[in-house]
Simulated assay, not measured.
Amino acid sequence: MTGSRLVAIGHYQPEKVLTNDALAEMVDTSDEWIQRRVGIRTRHVAAADESVSDMAAEAAQKALANAGLTGPEIDLVIVATCTSHERSPNVAARVANRLGITAPAALDVNTACSGFPHALAMADLAIKGGSATKALVIGVEKLTDFVDWSDRTTCVLVGDGAGAVVVTASDTAEISPVVWGSVPEMGRAVLIEGKGGSFSQEGRTVYRWTTTSLPDIARTVCERAGVAPEELGGVILHQANLRIIEPIAKLIGAVNAVIARDVVDSGNTSAASIPLAFSKLVERGELTSGSPVLLFGFGGGLSYAGQVVRCP
């Protein structure tokens, strides 16, 4: 086996849905103001006793079921998250224990909003290098634990949820080489800092960086994959803001692709946003199996990562 492929996907969101109108009763905002600025209508909020590990395990179990695999067949678990209160054992080990995965390599990755494509790249490289054969890659966040509900500039943005994929060894490389990097000197533009700290960001700085710098990087991802932007079947960007997603997708030149807009219903779920949006598109039959799909994450760090995968 000289490559890897994505064989199944699944997602999980908490039951509670928080609408813009409900937020307007908590803070000085309105449905019109929120939709005009970021495009969000609703977001899901985890229960107080629902942990990052709980949500990750739910999404992972669905991905395993969709792959027709059981826990003991998995030998690598990677979880992308920046909001776990659990330090040791890490989230990956907790998920492995819950799902009956025996003796896996289990690690967490924290690059915030670009965490999932970072984690997927690590799984791809491990499988190509012969260190794993079947991997679970999970993006999960409980951002509502780290938001100031009196700050209308940030509390309207975030939501909770998880998405997971199963990656296996393959005769062909169906996950392209990752293009990743960061801008450390701009890292303070997105923060969750200190014990009990709240999520904060410099919105204008992030907007300028994403809309001016990232389209060229995303096109480089396509070049590394040997796929022209117009050949893409789907574009799944980090679901941060509809005013960021739509301009980037247009500038990439993906004129024939389905563009993920799950931010409208789920808000910004950081590392969970890409697999969550991907899973919903697959579940609804909006993507064709085998079609090339661009995954591209960006945000806290400021970091970015992306690859082209074949849709399961």
Score class of each variant (00 low, 15 high):
residue 205 T to Y: 05
residue 186 M to T: 12
residue 2 T to L: 13
residue 148 D to M: 05
residue 53 S to V: 06
residue 251 L to E: 15
residue 153 T to D: 15
residue 68 G to N: 05
residue 113 C to T: 12
residue 137 V to F: 12
residue 30 S to K: 09
residue 302 L to H: 15
residue 95 V to W: 02
residue 85 H to M: 04
residue 158 V to L: 09
residue 87 R to Y: 08
residue 247 P to V: 03
residue 17 V to N: 00
residue 205 T to H: 05
residue 6 L to P: 11
residue 127 I to T: 09
residue 82 C to E: 07
residue 257 A to H: 13
residue 232 L to I: 07
residue 47 A to D: 15
residue 32 E to W: 03
residue 151 D to R: 14
residue 30 S to D: 02
residue 290 G to T: 00
residue 79 V to P: 11
residue 123 A to T: 08
residue 117 P to K: 04
residue 187 G to V: 14
residue 1 M to I: 10
residue 304 Y to Q: 03
residue 258 V to W: 11
residue 202 E to K: 13
residue 268 N to A: 12
residue 246 E to Q: 07
residue 267 G to W: 11
residue 124 D to S: 03
residue 89 P to H: 15
residue 69 L to I: 07
residue 24 A to T: 04
residue 225 A to K: 01
residue 279 S to K: 02
residue 85 H to C: 02
residue 257 A to I: 14
residue 199 F to P: 00
residue 7 V to L: 04
residue 290 G to N: 04
residue 117 P to V: 03
residue 239 Q to F: 05
residue 293 V to C: 14
residue 178 V to N: 15
residue 49 D to W: 01
residue 227 V to E: 02
residue 137 V to G: 04
residue 284 R to T: 13
residue 128 K to P: 01
residue 52 V to A: 10
residue 272 A to D: 10
residue 50 E to C: 09
residue 302 L to T: 15
residue 92 A to H: 07
residue 108 D to G: 07
residue 219 R to E: 00
residue 82 C to R: 02
residue 269 T to Q: 02
residue 166 V to H: 04
residue 2 T to M: 11
residue 238 H to I: 13
residue 236 I to W: 06
residue 226 G to D: 00
residue 115 G to N: 04
residue 308 V to R: 00
residue 176 S to E: 07
residue 308 V to M: 01
residue 90 N to Q: 01
residue 227 V to I: 12
residue 142 K to W: 06
residue 187 G to F: 12
residue 43 R to E: 09
residue 125 L to R: 15
residue 16 K to C: 12
residue 166 V to T: 05
residue 238 H to Y: 06
residue 199 F to D: 04
residue 74 I to Y: 10
residue 299 G to C: 07
residue 6 L to D: 12
residue 99 L to P: 09
residue 292 P to Q: 08
residue 76 L to T: 03
residue 134 K to A: 12
residue 124 D to L: 03
residue 160 D to Q: 11
residue 246 E to I: 02
residue 247 P to Y: 08
residue 47 A to T: 10
residue 128 K to A: 06
residue 182 S to F: 04
residue 110 N to R: 00
residue 92 A to Q: 09
residue 309 V to A: 13
residue 173 A to T: 14
residue 37 R to M: 14
residue 203 G to R: 06
residue 134 K to C: 10
residue 97 N to H: 09
